[in-house]
Design a protein around this nucleic acid. Sequence first.
DNA 1: ACCTGAACACCGTTCAAGT
DNA 2: ACCTGAACACCGTTCAAGT
Lengths: 185, 185
Amino acid sequence: MGASAKLDRAAIVDAAFEVLNDEGLDGLSLRLVAEQLGVQAPALYWHVHNKAELLSLMAATFHDAGKFSRVEGATWRDKLILAARARRRAMLERRDSARVCVVAQPLHSAAEAEPQLSAPLLEAGLTRRQALSYQAAVIAYTVGWVAYEQSQAMHDFLTQLIDFDESFEIGLRALVSGFAEAAAG
Amino acid sequence: MGASAKLDRAAIVDAAFEVLNDEGLDGLSLRLVAEQLGVQAPALYWHVHNKAELLSLMAATFHDAGKFSRVEGATWRDKLILAARARRRAMLERRDSARVCVVAQPLHSAAEAEPQLSAPLLEAGLTRRQALSYQAAVIAYTVGWVAYEQSQAMHDFLTQLIDFDESFEIGLRALVSGFAEAAAG
DNA sequence: ACCTGAACACCGTTCAAGT
DNA sequence: ACCTGAACACCGTTCAAGT
């Protein structure tokens, strides 16, 4: 079904997101991704190790969206909040993105990604432990929240009782404002 | 492989957790669950609609563990914190529990489960909206956190930099202490 | 009522073989 | 280097048939 442009990792990830939006995570198969690209399933294995790696690449998309934007004069609390909002926004653009994030195993050993991740918080005076803890908490909250937001049954029910945007903000602000300042252990 | 006791939903869920611990979510198949019970796979369909329902039943286990315990004189903040700790503790007892929670679709339309869920918070004077928002935030944080905690690569890396128990507590307390008191909108 | 056996459509993945 | 065709072991699920 694909006007073939060129088969590489980027094209495969794009096609995978297409299938994900159409079929959901349960229906995401390499065969459908291949069909989307006008190619046979085994062809994908030339570019990608296996389905697990494809899922990791997809998850990395949202991870990238949650990177700190370089905002002048922003406190570390501001940075955490902006990054969380960006991550949620990117995730809400695609179906089942939270499921993808939780199911996928991280690409880089996390050891590689970490320096770049925590640098902006260290600049602001936090210890390494604080930076990692706070960041882990914010990411966990965000991904967990979107998981509920994207769960059909949950959504149908909660949508008439709470405002998702507003409630996400309440939790996010509560979380970040509750973190201790640089001095604490 | 099963000394057959009696085949019912409870036995099937137990067997499924056994398989989950041995094989992880990827390896959790109805055929293996059936084998664990000394029975053929189609037999399960008499007791359970399909695999999705089985996953929902498994997720409900953790959901039950996160119910409010009736503690005298506990504030709503105390209640939220105790419930979150209990949920995390129950989840950490089994492999891939966070993945199960996120992949599974809720059993009850959530409309049924809700009254019992928010009652203890309403007693303490919160509005319904507040109760739902705060609870959703705490659950999202907890499930999201455990997801990272159970991710092998994340764990291996983070375990030498932060203390999971301590960091979970930091985020949890920050979150709950940041929620506004009963009056706010 | 409850379970088996056989089958169906569909997976992820491998691998020889083509170009 | 990059893709196809055919195959393997394994799925979830259905359904007639047994007891």
